[in-house]
């Protein structure tokens, strides 16, 4: 049995060897949130995704595209749980570019990707004071946070994958009207930029996008009233961005449970088989 223990120790050692993930550097530590989709049992909260979608659509989508998201994704398993009809109606509200039809644009269908808010990257920059609003499709996985030693080691065992959403939520809440006392010494805010605690370099091109009561939520049946605050909006839209970046999370974990169960069973049986075979052989 000692051999098995050394083997397991080696596996643990190998995994702890793997270097910590670096990410956008933040001056203030980012508070980790309890997300419904965290951990091995985590799944998306449909109501939260629907609220987040509403915030994205009413606030963010005028500047931020989501080119990898198709309307049909909104009705797919493990997502915000819209019905096929809702998605069809939603898609039809948008005009999509299609060079094969007369006039070059037509009404959207569920198979279409989310239309880009700007025709070209240069248009996007011109409309935003030279800054490019990043596409949201995988943004939640393109951001992260730096975990100090030793917690990045534990992350391999807890499967912590919410650094991006924690960062995005913190960023949306990290604005200041004026440069605060906590700013680095000698910090000068360039013209047309805004101070943010968590943005690398602190000078962000995006004006504070959210205000209290900006988006009116309609509570789902049996759901408690959701506060109409910037904090709530930021949390919801961050969750929605996680879904955009990883739409298959729920089914991936479900498959994972079946695979793990199988592996433990098969490993157990193989151990017995192996022991039977080696019985009577001194080794």
């Amino acid at each position: 049995m000692i051999k098995t223990k050394t083997f397991l120790a080696a596996v643990a050692l190998a995994s702890s060897l793997m270097a910590p993930a670096f990410a956008a550097e933040a001056s203030a530590p980012i508070e980790k949130q309890t997300w419904s989709f965290a951990g091995i049992f985590g799944t998306y909260d449909e109501n939260q995704l629907q609220r987040g979608f509403q915030v994205y659509r009413e606030v963010c989508a005028s500047c931020h595209g989501a080119r990898l998201i198709a309307f049909r994704n909104l009705a797919e398993y493990g997502g915000p749980g819209f019905s096929e009809e809702q998605v069809k109606a939603l898609a039809a509200e948008y005009e999509v570019v299609d060079p094969t039809v007369e006039g070059g644009v037509r009404a959207g269908v569920p198979a279409d990707r989310w239309p880009s808010p700007f025709p070209t990257e240069q248009d996007a920059r011109d409309a935003n004071g030279g800054s490019l609003p990043p596409d949201f499709s995988v943004l939640a996985k393109a951001r992260g946070l730096v975990d100090p030693f030793p917690s990045w080691i534990f992350n391999y065992f807890t499967g912590y994958s919410e650094g991006g959403v924690d960062y995005i939520r913190a960023l949306l809440l990290g604005y200041h009207d004026e440069v605060p006392a906590s700013a680095p010494e000698g910090f000068v805010l360039p013209e047309g930029k805004y101070y943010n605690d968590y943005f690398p370099g602190h000078a962000i091109g995006m004006a504070p996008p959210l205000q209290d009561e900006q988006v009116t939520y309609t509570p789902a049946e049996g759901e408690a009233e959701v506060p109409l605050t910037v904090e709530q909006y930021a949390t919801d839209v961050a969750a929605f961005m996680m879904w955009m970046a990883e739409p298959g999370l729920v089914s991936r974990k479900e498959t994972g449970f079946r695979v793990m169960l199988f592996l433990f069973l098969f490993a157990g049986l193989l151990y017995l088989t192996k022991r039977r075979i080696w019985k009577g052989i001194e080794h």
């Binding site: 993930a21 990410a23 943004l139 393109a142 992260g144 994958s161 650094g163 974990k253």
Partner: peptide, 14 residues
């Protein structure tokens, strides 16, 4: 693979 597929990678590669 199933519970932390991106943890060994780097956010910047997204």
């Amino acid at each position: 693979i199933f519970f932390a597929p991106d943890i060994l990678g780097h956010p910047d590669n997204y």
